[in-house]
Structures are given as C-alpha cells and as structure tokens.
Design a protein around this nucleic acid. Sequence first.
DNA 1: TTGACTCAACATCCTTTGCTACAA
DNA 2: TTGTAGGTTTCCATGTTGAGTCA
Length: 446
Amino acid sequence: MTVRLSYEDGTIRIEADEPLPPLPGVEHDDRGDVERAPAARYAEILNALEVAGLSVVDDVLDLPALSLSTDYRLREYQRKALEAWHENDDRGVLELPTGAGKTVIAIAAMAELGVATLVVVPTIDLLEQWVRELEREFEMPIGRFGGGTQKREPITVSTYDSAYLKADDVGDDFGFVVFDEVHHLGGEGYRDVARFLAAPARMGLTATFERPDDAHRVVEDLIGPKVYDVAVDDLAGEHLAPYDVRRIEVELTPEERERYENVQGTFVQYLRDSGLTLSSGSDYRKLVMRSGRDPRAREALLAKQEARRVMMNAENKRRELAEILDRHRDDRVIVFTAHTDLVYRLSERFLLPAITSETGTKERRETLERFREGTYSRIIAANVLDEGVDVPDANVAVVLSGSGSEREFTQRLGRILRPKDDGGRAVLYELVTADTAEERVADRRR
DNA sequence: TTGACTCAACATCCTTTGCTACAA
DNA sequence: TTGTAGGTTTCCATGTTGAGTCA
C-alpha cells in the first residue's frame, strides 16, 4: 500500500487506497473523504508510517537546500543546549536568561540544518533585531511578515500576529521554525501558528517557560518539551554580571493605611459573605465572572483594585526612590512601575525621562538612544520595557511596583545583567509596602 | 510615508482559613 | 495519620501590542 501526504491549509492530507493504521492526530474529514491532521503532526505521522513499513509519497514540503555558514563560536552552555535539542530530534524548548545569547544558538541551528526557516517574534522591535542579525550573519536578503511588509524569503522573520494571519498559507514553505519568547505560544490564538506549520524542526526560546495558567503544556505538545535550561545564577559572574536583590520595606502613611484597610476590608468581607475561597487564579476568574452580574462582587473587585493602587503607589516609596537615586548618582538606573499615571508623576518630580505605552515610536526610540549614549543616565517606565524591546544596559533597577509574575521579575532583572566593563555588581531594589498583600505578591514572583 | 485612530488579543488580576476525597 | 490535589469556561479594570483603516 502507498500513502500520499500533502499540505492543505494548515493540515496534512493523507490519502491511501487501504485502511490506515492509527496515526497521531489524524481524523477523518467527511468533506473530502480523506484523512487529515494538523500540520504540526507531520513529522510524527511520517515517523509512524515509516515504523509501519509503508511506502510514502511525500509532497508536503518542497524546500530548496540552503548553504549557510556562521562565524559564531558557541559558548559551552550554548553548545550543550544545541546538542540537547538535536538529541530530541530537533525539537524542544531552550530556557536561558536574558542576555545569555539565545539568538546565537538558533543561528547555529539554522546553519547546521540548512533549510528554509521561519523565525516568529512577539514585537516589531524584535523583528527588526532578528532581521539585522540574520542579514549580517548570512549575507542574504531576509524576508519579513509584519510591520506593514509581507515579503517571503528562504529565511523569514514574522510577528506572532502576522504569522497567525499567514500560517495556513505558508505552512509548507519552511522546514525549521524558531519561536522567540515561546511562552507567547500558549495564548489561545497564537497556538494555531505552530499548529498550521508543517516544519519538522522546531525550537522555542524563552527566559521563563512555565506559565501560571499551565499553557506551557500546550507548547510542549506543539514544539517539544524543555530540553535544556540554565539559571541566571549559573551564569552570573562569568557570562552575566553578578547581582544583588535588595528588598526594602516601607510603611504606609496613616492616611494610606486607613484607606488601604478600608478597601481591602470591603474585598475580604465580600469573600467571607459570599463563601468564595481564593486558592488559585481560576477562583479569581470565578469572582470576575460573578462581578458581571452581581453589583456587590463588582464593588469588591473595584475595592481590591483601589487597595492595590494604594499599596503600590505609597508615598514612602517615592521617598525611598529619592534616596536610591541620590545614592546611585553616578550609575545607570531604570525605574519600573505598574501604573502609567505614577510614571508621569515621578517623571515630573524627579525629572526622569519616561516611557509608557502612550509614548510614540519616535520619542521612545530617541529616549532609549539617549540612554544608550549616556545623555540620560536614568529612565522610568511602566511595563513597556519588560519584554521585546532592545533596552540599553543599566546597572541599577528599581522595582517600585510590579505584579506577582515571575516572568516580569526575571525580565526586569535581565535588564541589568549584561556584564560590566569594570566587573561591577548589579543591584535590583524591590520596594514593598509592609503589612499589605504586596508582601505576598513579591514572594510569589520569586 | 506618517500619524491618529479603532479593534482584537494577550497578560495580570489572589485570602490566611481550612472543606472533601484520596493517596502515601 | 498526614499531606495534597481537587474544580473552572467568558470578562470588573489596566497596560500593552500589532494589524488595519483613513486622511
């Protein structure tokens, strides 16, 4: 019996003149009266057919061979990461800290495989960085999907959004796909990108693979499991700057304390009265759903938000920030907050250049450029600089307020870990209001 | 080409007690 | 006895992004 495989709109179409053995992910499609599977299953199906000893006519991919070479010399951990990935049949996720050189590993893999490759990234900024890097390394035109351009080349870089729009169209054009910041692939829509691509070789890159919603399980299914990880502490001192994390507790002012206890009390009282227990994120979602119908639930939720605002924007944090800025007069400092309006208030008070999501592309670029060249020695930002932006290195970070997200914390820490010329230590200050829920939030992210 | 705008998608959003069923 | 996993499904608010549209 001969089995014929072809690619069709994000799926693998399987035709055979006799009944087939069970194949991974394959279902019968009544419309065309054929068997079909998501394109992501291509490599597994091929393998299963081979094991069954069936002859296969494979029309899924028609890829030109590429001759690629790279001058990069991989560091030992980078080489080990690449080996681990090869050992898992060229599939899997590599978890390395920001600044550890993930791009270099992917480029080495591309050179070794020599097939058409799609790189998927979350932001335009990262798209530009990858294109620059790949053009320099391989000296060939690099395609791009995103930022208003749709141009395909044997090596193409795409945003997740554009890849989502084009995946079923170009799913048979690439033999290798690299997902940068692969944790995004857990998002409901984005997972289809990996599903529609037939590329047998798959690499995911991230600094923080696990997701609080467990969606990394889906990523494991589509890309492969985590095959290698190295922690910040393993590289600090040699390949990354040594660092200290200093937690500073501040007290609420009497007025803030009164306000906090009042609104936090409203929230907790509602939980008691309604019999809701919060032991996980899903319980919280339950509360959110309830708030759509129940005015008291809504009131409780708004009270909780107000409590967060009070503790995160505490007056004494500003006083502490003034001291830190004074102490680090000669250092390069990035201040992180969770709220846009606080960014602008502090920007005015301490004359700090500010960046938020409201800052236009041009102004944002200029501010970062001035920070890079040293005209500015300190900047303040909301969540914008957490990920997907090329931020010049600093040696002091001040986390004025943040979420309980481990990812956010790791990314912010990563901003100060580029090795220093003088071998100096980096410092991350974490300002936390005492006797509030923020202590728990801060514990959670660590 | 740009800038301003809308839209959709994604991420975070979490108390401090102690229920119930089941496995070690 | 002790420890721990169990169960949930459409949206209160804020921050952020990319794509698309239009002038």
